[in-house]
């Protein structure tokens, strides 16, 4: 990455289907990934519901876009921060989330975890280090 690479964080705070925010965020991330910046996603508050596994919209006539999160690694978006407090407040654990990975080309496509479980305090520090934070 060149030295004018900027650090972009997408802050996701909404549940996936009640509003359009989650899907719009994902689309913007995928489009923005073409600019080869240092991109990370943060899942906070109801945003953690976006990556809950086992989503099946067959009976509600909406597009199930949860499989698209698995494509983020292909778009070189490999840092997905999940806030621990938000999970706990909702009775969720890491096991309730999809197993999202990316493949490291420099290490013979070794599969690595994309999700990083962090405390609010840790995430606040990561956020502080960003150039831009986009909110959805």
């Amino acid at each position: 990455m060149s030295e004018d690479t900027k650090k972009f964080m997408y802050l996701n705070r909404r549940a996936p289907y009640g509003t359009i925010y989650a899907w719009e965020s994902l689309e913007v991330v995928l489009i923005g990934a073409a600019f080869e910046q240092d991109v990370s996603l943060a899942f906070v508050d109801d945003g953690v519901y976006q990556i809950v596994k086992g989503q099946d919209t067959g009976e509600v006539d909406m597009k199930n876009f949860s499989p698209t999160y698995s494509a983020l690694g292909d778009y070189e978006v490999t840092k997905l921060y999940v806030e621990k407090e938000s999970l706990e407040e909702r009775g969720l654990t890491l096991d309730d989330l999809m197993h999202l990975t990316w493949e490291d080309e420099d290490e013979d496509w070794a599969e690595k975890d994309s999700i990083r479980l962090v405390s609010r305090e840790e995430l606040a520090k990561v956020m502080e280090g960003q150039d831009v934070v986009f909110s959805f």
Partner: peptide, 18 residues
């Protein structure tokens, strides 16, 4: 079918290579 999106060209290129 797997990801519910059509991949961007650079993603396609890399994936085809693999």
């Amino acid at each position: 079918e797997e990801y519910q999106i059509a991949p961007a060209v650079r993603v396609l290129t890399k994936a085809v290579g693999k």
